[in-house]
Write a protein that binds this DNA or RNA. Structure first.
Lengths: 189, 189
DNA sequence: GTCTATACTTCGATAGAC
DNA sequence: GTCTATCGAAGTATAGAC
């Protein structure tokens, strides 16, 4: 892996763990095994390196989610697989954590991938839900946009609860709770 | 308000906005209109001041939530009021945001109020849900612990989505989504 | 491309006068 | 209790040799 690659990968790891304010150029350099000069040769500064890291992380997250949500199966099966997939719950979401970084959110360029990622995920989930509803699998009264927002929120919030508790259990419970309501047989109206 | 009080209140505001790593003693002093010496007279250091601030914030959050969840009404009404209460959504949750602060979570003393707050909230919501279920208001098959975890997660995740989007809409949608599923008439089994 | 040296600022705290 | 002075370390870069 090139020095430039190692710098981006190190930035990704440290941004995930410590956020933007909590990650110094020096820490990235040490993690990457690169010198001061190398970093400033390849990137204009901390901001540009972080931007490359954030963009790559966003791209990966989207590719992974899309693969799972586009896999064969009913809407409920696909969403269940997505929610129940193996995750390092305690680490949380590498994109979601950036929303707590004022310096990232205050910078339109750094913020853009964060905004785009959630926008895309919300839309993609709503599509899956709408399909399930239209095919008679899910409750005909289900609101795809609202339900999709709720599902993404459960994921992001599940991470918060798991980190607060120091264990994965609250995350698993929240996922169980949402799936129980979602896949519950339709009510007789 | 005493200097000591102003320091704690300033620390609360800045911790909420910028987190622990993002908040310097100097910033707190300036926000409070206090000098270097004053702060170190009243508190041993940044950590001790942050601890006082976090404890107070946790206490307030709990008091507010308890008042709303203990108000009269059915379980669904109380939970709806809690979720729909007026909030500064873009600011997010002052306790939830601390879970993204590695230095807070790595310190058992700073972390304790965070852990306790979510633990309490989860339990309190589960009680309300169990009551609603036992009184025939909610689905008899409802799992109070899992559903409570889901509701807290929707709240915390809703903040994340709203911050990412730069508007409150995703938060409102997520809340709408969860209430729609929760208050849906029970299925015929 | 990578290294070392240097620079200026902020962080987090201590010392000691008033 | 509050103020100013001072401190060593870290943050974020720039300069220039190799």
């Amino acid at each position: 892996m090139s020095t430039q690659e190692r710098l981006v990968e190190s930035a990704r790891a440290l941004l995930w763990e410590r956020g933007y304010v909590g990650t110094s150029p020096k820490a990235i350099q040490q993690h990457a095994g690169a010198g001061q000069g190398s970093m400033y040769h390849h990137f204009a500064g901390k901001r540009e390196l972080a931007l490359a890291a954030i963009r790559r992380t966003a791209e990966q997250l989207r590719a992974t989610a899309d693969a799972q949500l586009s896999a064969p199966g009913t809407a409920a099966q696909r969403i269940t697989r997505y929610l129940r997939r193996e995750r390092d719950v305690q680490r949380g979401c590498p994109i979601g954590r950036l929303t707590q970084d004022p310096d990232v959110m205050a910078d339109p360029v750094l913020r853009e991938p964060v905004e785009q990622t959630f926008d895309w995920l919300h839309t993609r989930l709503a599509e899956v839900l709408a399909t399930g509803r239209d095919e008679g699998e899910l409750d005909p009264g289900l609101d795809p946009r609202a339900t999709a927002a709720m599902i993404v929120a459960v994921l992001q919030g599940g991470y918060v609860l798991a980190r607060a508790a120091g264990e994965d259990d609250p995350f698993d419970q929240a996922v169980t709770g949402v799936l129980a309501l979602l896949t519950r047989p339709a009510p007789t109206r």
